[in-house]
Simulated assay, not measured.
Amino acid sequence: MDKILVHEDKQLDELALAFSAVVLALSGHLVQEIHARVSQQGFEDLRPAHGFVFARISVGDATTATLAEHPGVTKQAAAQLVEELVRKGYVARHPHPHDARARLLRLTEAGWAATRAADQAARAAVATWQETLGEARFGELVADLTRLTPPGPIRPAW
């Protein structure tokens, strides 16, 4: 009986490792596919990291400090990303109504255009997944993964 339990535990452990490897591979592939498609739509000056910045800024009340918390980077790294996106015309700084030292960050029209391009690219990138799995199974997969996903902005809010 103990051999069966050890065998089942080992199978579960291997399955968990396989799951993490598959999810990481799919995630990396999806990010690269979205990035390639966004670049093809005229946003060659953006990098995948910018999408995470756009996602946090789009939900509102974003500052460089709150932006640093979203992808888990330093305030200095967040400030460099913000400066780059301001310089490229995707983000604008506005006075903070309650903190004179902070600046609220907002997407410009170009920033919103890039997020719309990313949404279109994401839909196109997973279209083959939908075809492969079928509509019902794809819906179940989305529901399952949604239950496992931590809270917080993953994509820009409309």
Rank of each mutant, 00 (worst) to 15 (best):
T63W: 02
T63R: 06
T63C: 00
T64G: 04
A65N: 09
T66C: 01
T66I: 03
T66Y: 06
L67S: 00
L67W: 07
L67Y: 07
E69H: 06
E69K: 09
E69T: 11
H70Y: 11
P71H: 04
P71E: 00
P71I: 10
V73P: 03
T74C: 04
T74R: 08
T74W: 07
K75W: 13
K75T: 15
Q76P: 05
A77L: 08
A77R: 14
A78E: 01
A79T: 15
A79L: 07
A79F: 11
Q80D: 09
Q80C: 03
V82I: 07
V82L: 00
V86I: 09
R87S: 13
R87C: 03
K88N: 11
K88Y: 12
K88V: 02
K88W: 11
G89Q: 07
G89H: 07
G89L: 05
Y90G: 01
Y90Q: 06
Y90C: 00
V91C: 02
V91G: 01
V91N: 02
A92S: 10
A92K: 11
A92C: 05
A92H: 10
R93S: 09
R93W: 08
H94M: 05
H94W: 10
H94Y: 12
P95C: 04
H96G: 00
H96V: 10
H96D: 12
P97Q: 07
H98R: 10
H98V: 12
D99P: 03
D99R: 07
D99N: 11
A100W: 13
A100F: 12
R101W: 14
R101T: 15
